[in-house]
Amino acid sequence: MDDSQRQEYWRTNLTLMAALLTCWFLVSYVFGILLVEPLNNIVINGFPMGFWFAQQGSIVTFIFLIGVYVWRMDRLDDEYGVGRQEEKRVADEVRAAREQEEGQQP
């Protein structure tokens, strides 16, 4: 990937993350807690809807959200031709970069 591709890749990732985290916030904190009382006036199959979001709907949505993330990121990786092989681990580079700065080479 060149620099502009990297920026594009990262921006796509951040946009996707923001969208998914918005849904995450909505189903749990908004539907499950903040709006639970008005939503409880709607009853489907015996479930008051606010209660249902807090105990069922949020969990099902979370699974779905991660599913969307996995699917979309896999496609994105394919578009850029990355991620199909065993990753090199950058831990040692991170460490080397820090120790170089601190002047305490092992």
Partner: peptide, 17 residues
Amino acid sequence: PQKMMDVIEEVRYPDPG
């Protein structure tokens, strides 16, 4: 250090295939 920031950047992208 700049080198650290470069490496952190590296963590964000999977390796080429």
